[in-house]
């Protein structure tokens, strides 16, 4: 078994090495976009079963965002919802034979965590401006500015390390059990891995939501989408 920190290069495109996690991510992305397009291309006011299912998904994402951030979910729906769907499918892709989940690759989790970190800044600045966003570091006291700044970095670090650790460990455990006990025995562990993958996707998305919401905690005016708690 190879190290989880090593990315295997499958081929090169214009001199750029393409690893397995990237290929699997492309496949997952293509599948998600194709599925989303096929499911959402003929929407009607009276939904059928499939439309009701995807509307339930959208409503659930909106509800989580609304409950967590106390704002209208439209500006954040695509990022948070895509984050959840991608991590969920990526985690579950490890159940396919010969496929290693992209989220078991440190670079993938780090990329997602960096995007969450940048999204916090983007949404915070968009909601309250640079002054408003930077003011959040002085909350509750200016003395907390260094700690808040460090927290911003460490929580992004903890975000991808948590996801990476859980998914990678699940893959490792299943791989070890398969190598030791054959094909049938890992099935309960695979079920557990599905549960862990769903929980980790949910946790990652919820934490991203919470971090973005904290970035909106500005005392500066000009945040019309904020609602009273």
């Amino acid at each position: 078994m190879k190290s989880p920190l090593v990315t295997e290069c499958l081929f090169h495109v214009a001199g750029i090495p393409i690893g397995a996690p990237v290929v699997v991510s492309w496949a997952i992305s293509a599948g998600l976009v194709a599925s989303g397009y096929l499911l959402a291309r003929r929407l009607t006011l009276i939904p059928d079963g499939k439309q009701a299912l995807i509307e339930l998904l959208v409503e659930t994402v909106d509800s989580q965002i609304r409950d967590t951030m106390r704002v209208e979910p439209a500006p954040y729906r695509a990022f948070i919802g895509s984050l959840f769907l991608f991590i969920l499918i990526a985690n579950w892709s490890g159940l396919l034979p010969g496929v290693e989940p992209p989220t078991a690759c440190l670079q993938t989790d780090a990329a997602l965590a960096v995007l969450v970190f940048l999204s916090v800044i983007y949404f915070g600045v968009r909601a309250g401006g640079w002054r408003g966003y930077l003011a959040t570091f002085a909350s509750p006291s200016p003395l907390m500015i260094p700690l808040n700044f460090v927290e911003t970095l460490t929580r992004a670090f903890s975000l991808f390390v948590r996801l990476f650790g859980n998914v990678m460990s699940g893959v490792f455990v299943i791989g070890i059990v398969v190598s030791l006990a054959g094909l049938i025995v890992p099935i309960p562990l695979m079920g557990l891995h599905m549960l862990t993958g769903a929980v980790q996707a949910y946790i990652f998305a919820i934490l991203a939501t919470v971090f973005i919401a904290e970035g909106l905690e500005s005392h500066a005016p000009g945040k019309p989408e904020r609602e009273a708690p």
Binding site: R41, S82, F86
Partner: peptide, 29 residues
């Protein structure tokens, strides 16, 4: 490279899903 590709990949995924999935479904709702 993997880090960068995954970052771009996810951003593209967000844009595509937003265009083809999230917005139409939210709009019909």
């Amino acid at each position: 490279w993997t880090f960068g590709l995954q970052t771009v990949n996810f951003l593209i995924l967000v844009w595509l899903l937003s265009h083809f999935f999230w917005r139409p479904v939210a709009a019909v709702i």
